[in-house]
């Protein structure tokens, strides 16, 4: 995920936006393997509250995290529209439970406001940038930081 925000000026990239903990986030569409309806997972003992457990994705056992809980925004309340975004993390997959998925955005690098200056000290270290879209503030997520912690 090292290529998160290094865009050349004219290049447009597509992001998928979603909400978690009542905030709007997005990640690059190329980092997403698939999006699945939420179904109960097998809980793992002795794990932090943001780790929901594991699920079966066509024969692979993949971990599922509650993104809202990971961001410290409280647990995701069970809802009809809840989905699991399966993201690509190196050679494996990880599922992230979110409230709902909204849309696909096409943006150029210019439209992303870099937040790396505040990132190092901020508790929101997993956000690499901000996109302003229809009066919404959309947070661009650094997937590696979310999955593996501050680097």
């Amino acid at each position: 995920m090292s290529d998160t925000a290094e865009l050349t000026v004219d290049e447009t990239q597509e992001f998928v936006t979603f909400s978690a903990g009542n905030q709007v986030f997005c990640i690059k569409i190329t980092q997403i393997r698939e999006i699945r309806r939420w179904a109960p997972v097998t809980a793992l003992p002795h794990t932090p509250p943001d780790v929901l457990g594991v699920m079966n994705l066509r024969g692979s056992v993949i971990p599922i995290i509650d993104l809202s809980a990971r961001f410290g925004l409280g647990r995701t309340e069970p809802q009809e529209r809840n989905v699991v975004i399966i993201v690509i993390d190196g050679d494996r997959s990880v599922g992230m439970l979110v409230q709902s998925v909204s849309e696909i955005l096409s943006v150029t690098a210019e439209q992303i406001q870099d937040t790396s200056d505040v990132r190092a000290t901020s508790s929101a270290y997993y956000i690499t940038g901000i996109i302003s879209h229809e009066k919404q503030m959309i947070r661009v997520i650094d997937l590696a930081a979310v999955l593996h912690g501050r680097s």
Partner: peptide
Amino acid sequence: VKSLDSDFGTIAGISAATILGDGKIAL
């Protein structure tokens, strides 16, 4: 036997996981 993701380190008391006939994962 399916190894559990090492992301959580080793989980005390659990060695691995498997997938049952109904598609659910059992530890």
